[in-house]
Design a protein around this nucleic acid. Sequence first.
DNA 1: ACCTGAACACCGTTCAAGT
DNA 2: ACCTGAACACCGTTCAAGT
Lengths: 196, 196
Amino acid sequence: MRADAKKNYSHLLAVAHDVVAEHGTDVSMRDIARRADVGLATLLRHFPTREALFEALLRTNLDALTQRADELEASSPPDEALLSWFREWIAFAQSHRGVVALMASAHTNPDSALYASCAAVHAASARLLLNAQAEGTARTDMNGDDFFGLMSALGWLVDLPPFAPRAGHLVHLIASAFLTNRPNNDVEKRCAQLDR
Amino acid sequence: MRADAKKNYSHLLAVAHDVVAEHGTDVSMRDIARRADVGLATLLRHFPTREALFEALLRTNLDALTQRADELEASSPPDEALLSWFREWIAFAQSHRGVVALMASAHTNPDSALYASCAAVHAASARLLLNAQAEGTARTDMNGDDFFGLMSALGWLVDLPPFAPRAGHLVHLIASAFLTNRPNNDVEKRCAQLDR
DNA sequence: ACCTGAACACCGTTCAAGT
DNA sequence: ACCTGAACACCGTTCAAGT
């Protein structure tokens, strides 16, 4: 990669980050290019599709997220780890509005730039679920796909402004569906932090 | 309404129904107009926005759906009525792919053509929930908004092809979150009919 | 190598002109 | 009254021409 290309690349990423934070996930590629004072074709050269752009934009945060799964697995009992993971996922969804919808439709499409990241999240989720199931604290009649489905559905929901204020409570509700021991008050309080 | 206008109106509705069934919710208005052998401006005159078109397209089915809430309320015990309502909603979502997302974002916007229909569904849901709560078969730490949120989230999810095969099971999972008595095997079997 | 203006085929909105 | 072609301001994609 040439020096000017490298500069353009990181500049575009920085601008995209700002403009997405400002105007949401569905800004046009043209707008981003304009804001970066760069030809639209230049943006498309670095990020051939909108998904490719978001993949680059989210890689760091998504890597950190899946790494949190490892930490939780090591430091917490399986049921607590599972619930904390679920909460952190929702927090991620809230701070990256619109991304969950992208991931949910990309996660079975190997051609998508987001496929690998989705697979990583899916794998981490399935692992934490299995741990809790083995311990008897998560219901055994669901699999990793079901769990990822619940994560996606709730992540999508809390992205909608009318539901954001109840996000934490909704997490608490869903948690009571997959945990066999109903979460206690302490957990409920931690969930409440997600309300917006 | 003049005779030719009336003819155009129903013709457009019929064409829209077919083309949506064929190509999904996100066909362009232009495509629909083309298929109807009518100027785009004519389509826009009858249905000034995409939401207005879908409102007209769904009114009959949505009316039937909310009426089902009344029937269920009269004929079934509150907890069964609540669960059946939830199941019928998901079945509706499955047969009108993409509509749930439209409704979820329209339900707090009084300017939307779909607002009234959303309000009707919301009200019916809240009523059935209250009945079950009064009877002690639904958890009392959730309100109508929460329930409508769960309905929306799951309806959106089962619209995604990868999750459709587990739709019934996912309904069963969520149901165990809002019903205090875990649903029995019989209910589980009825939910399984939603798998695609 | 890398950038970019311009052309292309789309989209929904608007409106003056036609019947 | 109702219809409609055309103009408009957008979108993402593609590519030949420039540095």
